[in-house]
C-alpha cells in the first residue's frame, strides 16, 4: 500500500513544483515592460471604481453547508457500497435487511432534503422575489 501512496506523494511534489518551474522558464524568455497602467485592475477600460472585496450573498454559504452535509453522507456510504455486493451475494436472506438499513440511512437524510426543497431553499433568486412582494 505504501508504494502506491509514495507514487502519489511524488506526484504531488512534482505537481507543486511544476507551476513555479513553468513560470521560471517563462521568466527567462518573456519580456518585462512594467507600466503602472498595465497593473491596474481590469474593468472594461474604465477607471476601476472601488475595491471588489465586498460582502456577497449569504446563499453561497448555505450552498456550501448543504454540500458539506451531503458530502459527509456520501463518505459514510462509500465503505458500505464496497461491501454491499458481498452482503448481497454471500449472506443468503440478509440482502433485503442490509438494503433496508441503507435505505433508512438515506431516507432520513432525504427528509431534510425534501424540507429544504419544499421551503424553496434551492431557488437562487428567492430573496429578491420575496423583497418585491413585501
Amino acid at each position: 500500500m505504501y508504494t502506491q501512496f509514495a507514487t502519489i506523494l511524488i506526484f504531488l511534489i512534482v505537481g507543486a513544483s511544476m507551476v513555479p518551474l513553468m513560470l521560471l522558464v517563462g521568466k527567462i524568455l518573456r519580456p518585462s515592460n512594467p507600466d503602472p497602467k498595465k497593473l491596474t485592475t481590469y474593468e472594461c477600460g474604465e477607471e476601476p471604481v472601488g475595491g471588489s472585496w465586498v460582502q456577497f450573498n449569504l446563499r453561497f454559504y448555505v450552498i456550501a453547508i448543504l454540500f458539506l452535509i451531503f458530502d459527509v453522507e456520501v463518505v459514510l456510504m462509500f465503505p458500505i457500497a464496497v461491501t454491499f455486493r458481498q452482503w448481497m451475494t454471500s449472506q443468503a436472506g440478509k440482502g433485503l435487511l442490509v438494503f433496508a438499513e441503507v435505505a433508512l440511512f438515506i431516507g432520513i437524510l432525504l427528509i431534510g432534503f425534501a424540507y429544504a426543497w419544499v421551503k424553496g431553499d434551492f431557488e437562487w433568486i428567492k430573496t429578491t422575489r420575496s423583497k418585491k412582494e413585501s
Binding site: 522558464v25 518573456r30 519580456p31 518585462s32 503602472p36 497593473l39 491596474t40 485592475t41
Partner: peptide, 12 residues
C-alpha cells in the same frame, strides 16, 4: 502564452 508578459495587478 509562454512568451507573454506576466502581470499581477497592483491591487491584487
Amino acid at each position: 502564452l509562454l512568451l507573454k508578459e506576466d502581470i499581477i495587478p497592483a491591487l491584487a
